[in-house]
Write a protein that binds this DNA or RNA. Sequence first.
DNA 1: TAGATTGTTAATCGATTAACAATC
DNA 2: TAGATTGTTAATCGATTAACAATC
Lengths: 221, 221
Amino acid sequence: MAKYPGVSPSVTRRLPRYYRFLGELMKKGVERISSREFAEIIGLTASQIRQDLNCFGGFGQQGYGYNVASLHNAIGNIMQLDQKTPAILIGAGNLGIAITRHMEFEKRGFQLLAIFDSNPEIIGRKIREWAVQDSAGLDAFCKEHQPKAAILCIPRTAAPAIVDQLVRGGVRGFWNFTHYDLTMVYGDSIAVENVHLGDSLMTLSFYVNELLESEQEKQTT
Amino acid sequence: MAKYPGVSPSVTRRLPRYYRFLGELMKKGVERISSREFAEIIGLTASQIRQDLNCFGGFGQQGYGYNVASLHNAIGNIMQLDQKTPAILIGAGNLGIAITRHMEFEKRGFQLLAIFDSNPEIIGRKIREWAVQDSAGLDAFCKEHQPKAAILCIPRTAAPAIVDQLVRGGVRGFWNFTHYDLTMVYGDSIAVENVHLGDSLMTLSFYVNELLESEQEKQTT
DNA sequence: TAGATTGTTAATCGATTAACAATC
DNA sequence: TAGATTGTTAATCGATTAACAATC
């Protein structure tokens, strides 16, 4: 069974946010914080913070609040950031390169083992410490190094075949930048985190147009 | 007033998804679809789809279902994708370049006017049809071209000053790739869409570890 | 001890699902 | 007309907020 089976996705999604803000507080030298103060900073209610944390255990102390460093550490443990899940990145286009260069995998619970691409012009090119390998060697690599997660920066059309290959090779987690709908196909046998940049930008279009419209009306009135 | 003031974010966030799947159905030559069939494809319930769409009007027909092309078009109108909000991108690092190269702004309601960076080594470099401009000219540019949205691909530390400058220059929508918390500072006077890649990866860490743990237990049993 | 703040239970709110009358 | 499927209201479910006793 999973360690925290009853925890809802809404709670899980707030954990990285808590972790991030606690990290900043530590940098600032803040030692303790009450749920009320933390709520102020993070933009939530004190109730919600206490409710969320108590899904995982009691990390605070009545009359005192929470110790910033130990709460930060506790959340890191919940997300098992020390675990360093072995991962590979598929597709060394601009997005793949940008992610490789900027993302601190080690701080977020992963270890990047290798990068793959099928384009002969890209194969062999070095990005940070990783030389791009030929996708043809993917099966052999999986057998030998047992990666458990994959970052998909490939075109949508290439996704189904690659994903199928990876799942057979033992990969269970996907950071999915394509629009291929993994969860529809594999259900709960894999963990997927979709990043739909196009959808995100379209959502902004809706909101910014709503906002501009209400501004215009104010001017006309 | 906004055109659709009562619509909840949960509904708004599903619109791009509806739009995307409808586009694919069009490509496949599907002319009509019932809420039940659509639910099957998209992974939601028929009730929810009908409920969502009826926030904006009645697009279906009893006994028939929905016309794929006209529903697709209707959602495009709701999100005002024809509007082409003038936008600028700040920060031409790998991420900024990747977004410039891959994102179809025009299809998603924006027109990219220009790219800015403060690094002299990057200024002048051409990405697709845009030559990177010096951030020093940002105020003048805003005055002349009146961009309404900005894509932030800058380091977190640079964000507060740039955002302040842009808001004063009339920018109202932000596609925010930094970890600087815009909404905390500017409230409802701007529209923000945050893309927290680090948080997303950490969430995957949690889920993949939960999954691997339950797999291991099954084997042990 | 007195004050503060948690952990936790109860109340509220919102979102999703179910049901069905309206109608094409 | 009969069958199908929407639009919409009512029921359920889940998540957030409020309240307060426990306790540091």
